[in-house]
Design a protein around this nucleic acid. Structure first.
Length: 919
RNA sequence: GCUCGGAUGGUGGAAUCGGUAGACACGCAGGACUUAAAAUCCUGUGGCCAUAGCGGCUGUGCGGGUUCGACCCCCGCUCCGAGUACCA
């Protein structure tokens, strides 16, 4: 009986489903482990061979942990709301509810075929009202909270209201959009609208009129992480800046905690670095500059207070609130022109030519508080309204942007740090000796910065300040396919819906398309009002809303009284291993950390960080094949001969090429225009060229996992995906190599059954060499799984089989079957039951115990090198002293040959490793 | 520009602690079995030289350094990939 995966695999998959083998419940008697995959968007194209990589890796780890006695939670669901699902629906002209359902069914079918051990009873879908009820619930909690900076946590807004009525803003340190100051008396006489206006300044979910990323192509606003190079991440449409009234989440309140939390996590350094850069903490000082002839001061932020003696002009952003006040009548027209001109430039144009210098003098002057010099105030779009205070002190000698500006407008450049050549470029380095700088002259930059901080505070010019690049997340989308906001309006004042009215379900609509003007599709739902007739919020939540707390919902997916019960949360706690793509670094992974910390502050979850350890699987690229058509003919020339002709390179479907040899018949049938193709062959074969490119339909290099399962089986697919290379590295898919893994499984099978299908397993006692091989493999495979080095563990299995040869002994094969089970669960189950005769599943077994005593031998082979260069090997008994080893090696005739009569200068003996003789 | 990765045979990759570089697999070449094919098995396979046999030299992107010994550590480059981009 041969290894018949086509029969075995579906049979076991059915059994696992029927018996609910992978269902899991909290069990206080066993340690828990939570393995999570980033749930997919059910897009229309289905899976290609790259998608399951992470699922296979996490499944191997899950099955391994089960064998180690852990109670493993390993759920799966679908991120079904949001732009990708909706765009697909629009493209195919169907309702997103319909396409989502279809795509999920297709996805599930493909996942089942690769034998992944999910507990499907815990499946969640973000578009399901029973699920998004809790997304809406969390939003309302944020609406009802503010962030107390002094306490370092979120608190109910009711506490803030109580405080306002007693002491106003006196002594308040809370995260806010703009700092406010009022007394209790002032608060107490405010009407409801005015109070709500005030509270919006503090709520963690709030509505504000701000500059947003508006994408006309998608008809919606986007968060910063959804925009790449001025284009939308989905669809690649241009994005422009526009002032709009939007809902936002006050993520910035958590900036420092999001940064500090990174140090406690087992994430890759590169991922942590991406998040650190995104948060963008910078330490500096706020400094107030007097304005000539005015009562007001201009507030700036700088990280280089040491260079303040070198300030020769000031720049404020064109959107800065002082622009109109600072502009003198004679410059009014020029300033207006400049503002109009910058508004016309799209975000993309602005990014494209950052080298172009532009700006306009306002006619006003500021006073340098240290030199007393009068310095002109300019506006320019190189200063951003949204960062710091939207105003800077310009030090052209030591900042390249200020330098370019000064050169363009012919402004003075005063060096205050020694170094560089200011006739060519600015000297930006934070090192060197201070010059022309009053009391700090002669100090090093590193001393001057703290000295200046102290002086600024002493003179009351400003104070030390930390700034973050992180922005509050824009939370509303002018689209249909998302969670409705549980918010209604009375006279344009936002009111939350009571918990008892959740979920607020999305109204069914036939005409759900977006508009280019920004009017949300829900505006077309005529009865989208509360029972009392108040209009609901018309925009919907963004894609990241539903994915921000899904890992909590999996712990207790059917609870209709809470997002997650306290008991379930205290058992499962947080995700121990999270596997997914690095593309979510500044999106989902930031938002869900924020969301989790917020719920933690309010006492709904018991862990401050959601994802303890995170592994980013690499991308699987495609391997494209080419044929070479002789220009102007229908003749195709083989790779090696193409230099003799003028040829044109054409992508050819990789599925009709094997080992770079083209299947000529299949090629003629592939496309009608090639039906009468002629070939110029080498050695009777047509050899194709190849290249590594992104896996995509247009390059004809997409390999479908269904095809691999059909031809080689799921176990081969699983092992081969791991064998391709390190999990975290991007690597090309090349079906050519798959035979090696498949051959391994067939060979493994033949150890259990002979040619006629009779069981071949014997109860003979294993030989020492066989035990050595077994235990070496147990050690290697166990260590490799712990280190996520699955490619080398697959190799370890192959080496094991090469060493064992024809071994049919139960004492060897039984532990090997368990060892293999996480990688190739179907064949392992089959061999465990039919060949080894067990009536339980292989996953009820225990992972084999490593016994080092089988590895010890009574002699050791020392590699002997001369001057570090390996020359020969010497086998010696174990237990010799280094001196005895040295004597034995020097007595060897081979050593005499290399020594050539000379005495060795030095002999280095590293026990268990090497002997090096220095001549 | 800045930040972080990476570069090893024809190919994917291994060498996890500074100690035999190229494990394992693909591909290729040769052979066995077979009417033939498939399947299976055996041998060889970094490069150069030598070859009856032993063997020798060289070799981990480039140039230096530390060390008895470097793919690994240090300094200086080149190239590739990713993130970010007027962040004051």
């Amino acid at each position: 009986m041969e290894y018949n995966f086509k029969e075995i695999e579906p049979r076991w998959q059915r059994r696992w489903a029927e018996r609910k083998t992978y269902r899991v419940e909290p069990d206080p008697t066993r340690p828990k482990f939570y393995v999570l995959d980033m749930f997919p968007y059910p897009s229309g194209a289905g899976l290609h061979v790259g998608h399951p990589l992470g699922y296979i890796a996490s499944d191997i780890y899950t099955r391994y942990k089960r064998l180690k006695g852990f109670n493993v939670l390993h759920p799966m669901g679908y991120d079904a709301f949001g732009l990708p699902a909706e765009q697909y629906a629009i493209q195919t002209g169907q309702h997103p509810a319909v396409t989502t359902e279809q795509n999920i069914a297709r996805y599930r079918e493909q996942l089942d075929k690769i034998g992944v051990s999910f507990d499907w009873d815990r499946e969640v879908r973000t578009c399901d009202p029973d699920y998004y009820r809790w997304t809406q619930w969390a939003f309302l909690k944020m609406f009802d909270s503010y962030y107390d900076n002094a306490a370092g946590r979120a608190r109910p807004i009711a506490e803030l209201v109580a405080r306002f009525s007693k002491q106003g803003t006196e002594g308040l340190d809370a995260a806010c959009t703009a700092s406010m100051s009022f007394t209790a008396a002032e608060w107490n006489v405010m009407d409801e609208a005015a109070r709500e206006q005030t509270l919006q300044n503090y709520r963690l979910a709030y509505r504000a009129d701000t500059m947003v990323n508006w994408c006309p192509g998608l008809g919606t606003v986007l968060a910063n992480d959804e925009v790449k190079d001025g284009l939308s991440e989905r669809g690649g449409f241009p994005v422009e800046q526009k002032r709009m009234k939007q809902w936002l989440l006050r993520v910035t309140a958590y900036a420092q905690r999001l940064l500090d939390g990174l140090d406690t996590l087992e994430w890759s350094d590169s991922l942590k670095e991406i998040q650190r850069n995104w948060i963008g903490r910078s330490e500096g000082a706020q400094v107030f500059f007097d304005l000539k002839g005015r009562d007001e001061k201009l507030e700036i932020f700088t990280t280089r207070p040491d260079t303040i003696f070198g300030v020769t002009f000031m720049v404020i952003a064109p959107e800065h609130e002082y622009v109109s006040r600072l502009t003198t009548p004679e410059y009014q027209e020029a300033v207006d022109d400049y503002i109009a001109q910058t508004k016309k430039r799209s975000e993309r144009e602005r990014i494209a030519d950052t080298k172009r210098v532009s700006g306009q003098f306002t006619g006003s002057y500021a006073i340098n508080p240290f030199t007393g010099a009068e310095i002109p105030v300019y506006i320019s779009d190189y200063v951003l309204a949204g960062y710091g205070t939207g105003a800077i002190m310009a030090v052209p000698a030591h900042d390249s942007r200020d330098y370019a500006f000064a050169r363009h407008f012919d402004l003075p450049i005063i060096p205050v740090v020694e170094g560089g050549d200011l006739s060519v470029e600015s000297y930006d380095a934070k090192s060197g000796k201070m010059i022309n700088s009053g009391f700090i002259t002669g100090m090093d930059v590193k001393e001057a910065i703290p000295a200046m901080f102290a002086e600024v505070e002493k003179r009351g010019l400003g104070r030390r300040l930390v700034n973050y690049r992180l922005r509050d997340a824009i939370f509303s989308r002018q689209r249909y396919w998302g969670e409705p906001f549980p918010i209604y309006y009375k006279d344009d004042v936002a009111y939350p819906l009571g918990d008892d009215r959740l979920p607020l379900t999305l109204p069914p609509m036939q005409d759900f398309g977006p508009t280019a003007e920004g009017e949300p599709p829900l505006a077309r739902a005529t009865d989208w009002k509360t029972a009392e007739g108040y209009p609901y919020e018309l925009s919907t939540m963004p894609g990241f809303a539903g994915s921000s707390a899904y890992y909590l919902r999996y712990m207790d997916p059917h609870n209709d009284r809470a997002l997650v019960s306290r008991e379930a949360n205290e058992y499962w706690r947080s995700v121990d291993l999270y596997v997914g793509g690095i593309e979510h670094a500044t999106g989902h992974l930031m938002y869900s950390r924020f969301w989790n910390k917020f719920l933690y502050d309010l006492g709904y979850v018991c862990e401050d960080e959601p994802f303890r350890k995170l592994v980013n699987q690499g991308m699987i690229q495609g391997r494209s094949n080419f044929v070479y058509r002789v220009v102007g003919t229908n003749k195709f020339v083989s790779l090696g001969l193409r230099d003799r002709y003028e040829t044109q390179e054409i992508h050819v479907d990789v599925n009709i090429v094997k080992n770079d040899i083209l299947d000529l018949e299949a090629f003629r049938k592939w496309r009608p225009e090639f039906a009468d193709a002629e070939f110029i062959l080498e050695d009777g074969k047509y050899v194709c060229g190849w290249a590594i490119e992104k896996m995509s339909k247009s390059m004809y290099n997409v390999v479908n996992p269904d095809y691999i399962v059909e031809n080689y089986g799921a176990d081969t697919l699983r092992m081969y995906e791991m064998f391709l290379g390190p999990l975290e590295q991007s690597k090309p898919w090349d079906t050519n190599g798959i035979d090696g893994v498949h051959k391994f499984l067939r060979r493994f099978w033949r150890l259990f059954f002979d040619k006629d299908g009779n069981a071949a397993v014997t109860d003979e006692l294993p030989a020492p060499a066989e035990l050595k091989t077994l235990h070496k493999t147990i050690k290697k495979v166990g260590d490799d799984i712990e280190n996520f080095s699955f490619n080398t563990s697959v190799s370890a299995f192959m080496i094991c089989l090469n060493e064992l040869g024809d071994c049919h002994k139960r004492a060897i094969l039984e532990p090997l079957t368990i060892l293999l089970a996480p990688f190739a669960p179907h064949i392992a189950e089959e061999l465990w039951t039919s060949a080894l005769g067990h009536d339980t599943t292989v996953f009820d077994a225990a992972f084999p115990t490593f016994d080092a005593s089988h590895l010890i031998e009574n002699s050791f082979e020392y590699p002997v090198s001369f001057n570090g260069k390996m020359r020969f090997k010497k086998e010696l008994p174990l237990g010799l002293t280094p001196g005895e080893v040295e004597a034995a090696v020097l007595a060897d005739p081979a050593a005499a040959r290399y020594l050539d009569g000379k005495a060795p200068k030095k002999v280095i003996v590293v026990p268990g490793k090497i002997i090096n003789i220095v001549i």
